[in-house]
Amino acid sequence: MEFIDYYKILELDKKASDDDIKKAYRKLARKFHPDLNPNDPAAKLKFQQINEANQVLSDPEKRKKYDAHGKDWKHADEFERAGRQQSYQRPSGSGSQGNFSDPDFSDFFESMFGGAGGTRSGGSAKYRGQDFNAELHLDLKDVYETKKQTLTVNGKNIRLTIPAGVEDEQTIKIAGHGSPGVNGGPAGDLYITFIITNSTKFKREGSNLYTDVELDIYTAVLGGEIVIDTFDSKVKLSVKAETQNGTIVRLKGKGLPVYKKEGESGDLFVTYKIKIPTNLSDKEKELFRELSKIKDNGK
């Protein structure tokens, strides 16, 4: 556990007045407030430090104790035992003040002030609870249909609906499922970021899917019917005669569902890759030569 210089955090010197502390807190809180820095864990951590520093320095009693023991804060407990009887108590169970949960405060703070709720005076400002961030790893196959999943966040079960078509790295907010607020302030929110891996042969862009299909030279030249895999089934495709390599065919509505648009789906784009035959028999070679001659004579 390291000594935390609250003055340094608020960019103040030890002689700072109450007004200086208030101004410094406001200035830094505006810079690092989670509402102004969405999805920024570094800013959130900094905001917690600023909050903690303000909790100590803006409270005359706490500031006095902090100033008195300063870097020798480790001896504060001895001082307390000798001089006073248990002035600072840890909060017991569910406090009516709705203080910050303990993880919001450093070990240093807790060792000096006995936990988040120790000596907080009533009537202090409302604070929004901490936001939680979580990642949910899914495969592309999992986002083809809307799913329900139960997550456990900080011991609480949250039943989550994962809408079909959710994007990789898309973040959704579940309001009010973060840390409880302080002094009646609103609870924080839970942010869930979806990390979607792709184990399928399809490539994805938004709700559209892309795939390559090998086409034998005879079907490409003469036309015909082939059966290809879509994301969830198979379809029969008519191939036009004289289909060129790299031809792209669009299968409407055979892509992924469009996020939060029920009944709408993207398209599947099939690129034909024409396969040149190998290991030809003498007869086949002969016939190709024949074809070549016919082509030359036709010019």
Binding site: P38, N39, E167, D168, E169, Q170, K203, R204, E205, G206
Partner: peptide
């Protein structure tokens, strides 16, 4: 704007995967 840019970045990253 930050939110829109973040969405655009995610979309471009996804396109890049193609």
């Amino acid at each position: 704007r930050v939110n829109n840019l973040q969405n655009e970045l995610n979309s471009l990253k996804n396109r890049l995967k193609l």
